[in-house]
């Protein structure tokens, strides 16, 4: 089950992590995009919980609406919880013509999930993204910033997923 973002409660530990991130960015509100990316990295489900966004809005001279304008505008920032290993599958042309449909089919079958759902153990989600510049490894996926590809057989996909067990 994906937990509800609004039920997320901010811990003192996360607060101090956010403080540290703000320090790293010199509490400079123009660096909000970088700050949000760093905060997202601290959350196991790779998203910005509402409570975290509110906390940042308190600490910086920024309106909450500006923070949410960024979160909703940028694809790399997420409002909703994801798997601990979100599988970003490239859906652009170089991967498309290298049979990323087969790759997507294999992922769906092996994990038993579709877009927008998470595996029962909270580990994986599958998400379509635009070209991430690994077209020489098409068809490719990206999991927590690492590119994997080319993934042409079901066996390769199975081996990949096993790494995250």
């Amino acid at each position: 089950m994906i937990e509800d973002s609004s039920k997320f409660e901010i811990t003192d530990e996360l607060k101090s992590k956010i403080e540290k991130i703000l320090d790293n960015h010199y509490h400079d509100f123009t660096q909000i995009v970088g700050i949000l990316l760093d905060v997202q990295d601290e959350i196991p489900q790779h998203y910005i919980p509402k409570a975290a966004a509110f906390y940042i809005a308190e600490k910086l001279p920024l309106k909450l609406s500006v923070i949410y304008d960024c979160i909703t505008f940028y694809d790399a920032l997420n409002e909703e919880p994801r798997g601990r290993y979100p599988i970003e599958i490239c859906d652009s042309v170089a991967c498309k013509v290298n049979d990323n449909d087969f790759l997507l089919g294999s992922l769906k079958e092996l994990l038993g999930i579709d877009f927008g759902t998470v595996t029962y153990d909270g580990r994986f989600t599958i998400e379509k993204v635009s070209c991430f510049g690994a077209c020489d490894r098409a068809p490719a996926v990206r999991i927590n910033k690492t590119v994997y590809g080319p993934l042409k057989t079901k066996e390769q996909v199975r081996k990949l997923l096993e790494q995250f067990v």
Partner: peptide, 8 residues
């Protein structure tokens, strides 16, 4: 150094 966030 600044980072983008996934917008072409």
């Amino acid at each position: 150094l600044y980072s983008g966030a996934g917008a072409y």
